[in-house]
Computed example of a mutant assay.
Amino acid sequence: MKTRTRHGIILIGVVTVLTSLLFVYNSTSADTPGDQLHSDGHQIDAASRQTFSLEGYISIIDHKPLKTHCRSCALVTSSGHMTGSGRGAEIDETECVIRMNDAPTRRYQKDVGQHTNLRVIAHSSMQRVLRNRYELLNSSQDTFFIFWGPGNYMRRDGKGLVYNNLRLMKQLMPKLQVYIISRPKMLQFDELFKKETGKDRKRSNSWLSTGWFTMAIAIEMCDRINVYGMVPPEFCKSPHTKPSVPYHYYEPSGTDECTMYVTHEQGRHGSHHRFITEKRVFAKWARMFNIHFYQPDWGPPPVINNNNNTNS
């Protein structure tokens, strides 16, 4: 009940912010298309990588699938481990840069870079993204935005509040490339989580994190994935031995990252993310796909072969 109330308040705020876009869009659209396209200094030949149709990610207006492909991707997390990393130039040299929710780049370019080709956004972060629209939405003609959310908020029959707001946002800012994760694809993600962990997401009172969706999408669209700021699964097992960093690099006074991970992992009442469980899956996927972890730098441990049979 509390979750529904909170979501209702968020959606009221979203409607208010969207309405304000009517008054600011004309002033921002005065830039020439060339100015908007080159505004972040990272022009990519989109045609060269629009080769694969990624089913389940559909555009908000015409419901066409997302078409993109990258040889190499930098998946930049929002972790406090990025602070002071100096990885910005390295990240910006990657063909495609993927970010999550409302993670900013302005003022943090030295550590996290400034280019963004794909941003994966939870429905609950929509209001914050709109609040920071001058940085995250304006001048983002070459960025794909993929939104995810519960089925009742994303339904396309006129009753999906988030879906309706995204359509309005697209109408106000028509050059934005806005996509949603379809209902069948969301169910596939639930089944994937159950297959990989043996846990039913709903029965365990958990929500898949934006990181889960982002990693899965990256595997579909990228040949190589460099993940920045993601700790290994056992990193927070003894948090007193690890340096304390904030959950978000752009909220230095916010909750400690390991505290957030452990609290959610152990939570049994209400809705929680299983951050540590998801990271165990990511470590497994790193053995199967071309995934590499930096800041901190780590790799999955080798699989121990318990087969003691010897040839006679």
Rank of each mutant, 00 (worst) to 15 (best):
V76L: 00
L22W: 10
V24L: 05
M154P: 06
E93P: 00
F147L: 11
I12A: 13
G151I: 10
R274C: 01
R224K: 15
G84M: 09
P301H: 04
L166Y: 05
T310L: 14
H81P: 00
V112Q: 06
F235I: 01
D297T: 14
Q295N: 12
Q114S: 14
F282Y: 11
W148H: 15
P296A: 04
P150L: 08
E55N: 11
N226R: 14
D45I: 12
L166N: 05
M221N: 06
R156K: 13
L54W: 07
T214V: 07
N309C: 11
R107S: 12
P302Q: 11
G84H: 06
K159P: 00
S53Y: 11
P174H: 05
S204N: 14
T210C: 05
R156I: 10
R183T: 10
F189I: 04
G198C: 04
T77W: 01
Y25G: 00
W148N: 08
G267C: 10
V15C: 00
K67Y: 07
G86N: 08
I60E: 01
S140G: 08
I60A: 03
T116K: 04
S244K: 13
G158M: 09
A216L: 14
T94E: 06
M82G: 00
D31N: 04
M126W: 09
Q109T: 13
D35N: 09
F23L: 14
G13P: 06
G113W: 03
A218H: 09
G34A: 12
R203D: 12
M169F: 05
N308L: 15
E191M: 11
N290G: 06
I304T: 13
W207A: 08
F52W: 00
Y250V: 03
W207Y: 12
S20L: 14
S182D: 10
C222T: 05
P65S: 03
Y57H: 08
K194I: 01
G267H: 03
G86Q: 06
V281K: 03
L168N: 06
T51D: 01
D40P: 00
M82T: 01
V17L: 15
V303L: 14
R106W: 07
L187W: 07
K195S: 14
R167V: 14
T68N: 04
C96M: 08
N205R: 08
P150W: 04
F293W: 09
S271K: 08
P296F: 02
S139K: 13
S78F: 11
W207M: 05
H292R: 13
T77N: 01
M288Q: 15
Y134Q: 07
T16Y: 10
Y247I: 02
Q36I: 14
V227R: 00
W207R: 12
I98W: 03
T19E: 08
G84Q: 09
L54M: 07
L136R: 07
T241D: 09
V227N: 05
I219V: 14
N307M: 06
Y179E: 04
K175V: 06
R99L: 08
S72F: 02
R274K: 15
S20W: 11
R87N: 11
S209A: 09
N226F: 10
E265D: 03
M230K: 01
P104L: 03
M215F: 09
L136S: 04
S124N: 09
R203T: 07
F145K: 11
N165M: 10
Q127L: 15
V262L: 11
A30W: 07
Y57R: 06
P300S: 08
T259M: 12
K2L: 13
G270E: 08
R274N: 03
T255W: 04
E278T: 05
L66W: 05
S209W: 03
G299R: 13
